[in-house]
Design a protein around this nucleic acid. Structure first.
Lengths: 343, 343
DNA sequence: CTGAAAGCGCTAACAG
DNA sequence: CTGTTAGCGCTTTCAG
């Protein structure tokens, strides 16, 4: 089943068939219809290899996952969800998704280089962002189309990216907590290097200062680091912390568990808001108050952008911020009443 | 950078370079060395499209995920972990992984058909197994190489698959619980249609009958189905159930939470063993006693099999059972002492 | 053991 | 608006 067979059967030349495939405006509607009909009849499907060879584009996009350094990374439902959405969009446009996964940046880098050299993909979607990322550097230096799902650290004005407004989210978290009477609020994370942490932390700081509250350093929550855990606990007690903003739902769960073991209950003693609104938010009570980051939109827009780039329908840069929403559930308590009692 | 450039520079013909690439035995070692050296010098990377077109194989494998019907499916760390492992193996052999994900079987089917028609992949790895799966049927009918990660429902003797011995795992769970004095044991699942459920449930039944214990019907745990939840609770009370075997860690967590809300504690009132030993097993106390299914081996073996199939180095059928191990943690209690007291 | 040459199926000037 | 033709880079007979 080749283009030739179709051409012959339809009584036209191969190039006409090819043009019909691309829906070229240089072909009359009548001919197109005829050709399309015989394509259907013959069950013709274009051979990708030939198309790639002749046109040097592959109709495939590489999706680069963050390095799976810690086992925990695997458990972030985000990865699978975004893959599903992106793939769904890709399918609509007859694109295929190839993946780049690895346990180290180096591994990712090697794979990307090979994929690019082999011309297997037309461009990449990068699902993470961090400072001095060799992957990003390589893509940029070689002018390979890519879009970041996240906020770039460098070259922000030269790279296309889509993200939520992380700063605003964190500010919103602080505002919400402050409204309910919380004044001593802490930011907790499981990683202090990622750009998303940085953005959210800054948002927290801004939010705090706007409310004339003093912001604290972020605390790194690592289940295996007992001494620090102890310090964290003491700090919460000493500073009369009543609320925590936590980097993601899974970490929030762990934090909750930690305090629970030490006699502090969420939300009675400690309120908690986290990010992502993943399935983790509904597993155990209290269900988590969490920001919905709208993964569907993130994925859809991301694919639209990379498509525009590889098809050169877009100039080189664009940034898109996808709206979020706060899902209010059980992990936050209104502490105003106690204040009223005292006053 | 084409094969021609290399040929010219090395003073040989393009076909010699091509043969060197395939490490053909018809080329002298000396020539190979020379050619390889100049390939290095020139940084030559073969063009996949050309290779595909000429040889009709793509050096790519499609990985088919289970239909993401419920949001929860996204949260199974298994998917991401296995993808990482398979991709790692693929990389070693210079293969690329393309994914097939979707929210329905139909979506998966469409994608597979297209990928195959376009000759984008040489074969597939299917990460699930269920009765009357159109995907499997399509692959089988068209003689497309594929291996199932899981146990096939039909045509077991004609299809290559790799899995843990699910029956034996469930039996082992029962044995372990029985050893510690449990006699009334229930099997809990969140899905009664998958083959893995069936296998494990049968294993449970066998285990029970071997110990002369009466096995119960499996209970379907659905957080949103309150009436059934109530029946479940009553049943546990009425039958003096002391231990649960639960289909996976995430469900186990939910079950634990459910009983906790109703005043039954794990492991004091109820012991619990689950499957997969995923990160969920360590999030909150009591940490889960769970079967480690050795995802690394599963992934590695699976890729080996599909590679053998697409390279026709294997006959059409093989089954591999990967060993498992039981990680004993906090969710199971030894109840023998109380029995001793009574006797 | 090595080279020459004929494609693989499609695209994209270039003509008409 | 449509056909002709020359490749894209690699594989693979067929000769030698």
């Amino acid at each position: 089943m080749t283009i030739k067979d179709v051409a012959e059967r339809a009584g036209v030349s191969p190039s006409t068939v090819s043009r019909t495939l691309k829906n070229s405006s240089a072909i009359s509607q009548k001919t197109k219809d005829k050709v399309r009909k015989t394509m259907k009849e013959l069950g013709y499907v274009p051979n990708i290899a030939a198309k790639m060879l002749a046109s040097t584009d592959s109709h495939a996009i590489g999706v680069v996952f963050p390095p799976m350094i810690k086992q925990d990374r695997h458990s972030q439902p985000f990865n699978m969800e975004i893959l599903t959405v992106i793939n769904h969009e890709a399918k609509k446009h007859h694109y295929t998704i190839s993946v780049v996964v690895g346990s180290s940046i180096t591994e990712l880098e090697e794979q990307i280089k090979r994929m690019y050299a082999e011309k297997r993909v037309d461009g990449f979607v990068v699902l993470y962002s961090m400072a001095d990322d060799p992957v990003q550097k390589f893509l940029r230096n070689n002018q390979i189309p890519f879009v970041i799902l996240g906020t770039p650290v460098d070259y922000e004005n030269e790279t296309t990216y889509v993200d939520n407004d992380n700063k605003l989210m964190a500010r919103t978290a602080v505002d919400y907590l402050a409204e309910l009477g919380h004044r001593n609020i802490l930011f907790v994370t499981d990683d202090q290097t990622s750009e998303v942490f940085l953005e959210r932390y800054i948002g927290y700081e801004i939010g705090m200062s706007r409310k004339d509250l003093i912001s604290h350093s972020s605390v790194l929550f690592d289940q295996s680091d007992l001494p620090n855990l102890q310090k964290f606990y003491d700090y919460v007690q000493a500073k009369h912390i009543t609320a925590l903003v936590v980097i993601d739902d899974m970490t929030a769960l762990k934090v909750m568990e930690f305090f629970n073991c030490h006699g502090l209950q969420v939300p009675d003693d400690l309120s908690l808001v986290s990010f992502n609104n993943s399935p983790y938010a509904h597993i155990i009570h209290p269900y988590l108050t969490s920001f919905d980051i709208d993964i569907s939109s993130l994925g859809r827009v991301t694919f639209e952008r990379i498509l525009a780039l590889v098809q050169k329908k877009a100039k080189n840069q664009a940034k898109v911020l996808v709206p979020f929403s706060l899902k209010k559930r059980e992990s936050v308590r209104d502490v105003r009443e106690s204040r009223d009692e005292n006053s």
